[in-house]
Amino acid sequence: MTRLIAKRLLLGLLTLWLVATLVFAVSGALPGDAAASILGQDATAETLAALRAQMGLDDPLALRYAHWLGGILQGDFGLSLANGRPVAEVIGTRLPNSLLLAGLSTLVAIPVSLALGIASAMRPDSVFDRLTTFLSVLALSTPSFLIATLTVLVFSVWSGLLPALSNIDRAEGFGGTLRVMALPVLALSLSVIGQMARMTRAILIGALSEPYVETAILKGTSPLRAAILHALPNMAGPIVNASALSLNALISGVVFVEVIFAYPGLTKLMVDSVATRDLPVMQACALIFCAGFLILVLVADIVAILANPRLRSAG
């Protein structure tokens, strides 16, 4: 087990390096640079040259790559080209916000979708099941920016229940934070719930028809009990795996939520840094997303192994 994790971690580091190199190569190919972006229409040859020299944009690509990679190995991500602040500091203020958003959305999405999925699987083809299926399909078929804007209209503009903007920095206390987070979390969890509820239902229905579960039910165990005690543990692997994947989709959805609610998170930072050609920030963001995903997959695998004894020896 430990060996497996160590092996996976090593492979993960290798993946990170590959992603870093890939992102570096792609970002080198972007037209324009940070100096031109900052000076915009007012650039003159002279000011542009001075700014480029200040930012070290004149160095050859290979040198910049070596410098950048060397810095990262020492834990130094460099300075933001857009505003001259250390990348670690810029990201440090945004990352907790993104983690909070993703964490709360997960906390809402997973129990709700598990409950919906289990309930539907218990009574397939019931009115409840049909309704859940219908709403799930609807939720996952609607573009996330539309869901986000609709929730603003309904809960904020029309009813005035919740704030339309997520001014997280000025939220007061725990209650204030929850109020501010409510709409982004709702917008973000809806589509994830749609996906995960469907997955859970499908996996569980499959499991319930397995012989050993059927035997348990025949022996007098209630179907719900059978589902939770017998089918679910064996299905934990696929469900957790699927959850990790929908969380990846969730990260993509975060972009829209952060833009629409003016939520100062990491994806908005990355969108900005692409626009301003702030490569150090952009590259650091890419690495964080990649690392986050790898950790998710690793956790999913470990949970799957722990839940299924047959896999334990396979590592």
């Binding site: 804007t149 503009v157 704030p163």
Partner: peptide, 14 residues
Amino acid sequence: PDESSRLNALRAGE
């Protein structure tokens, strides 16, 4: 940057 977000925030009184 999104115009409809700006207008919604204005209409919501924020």
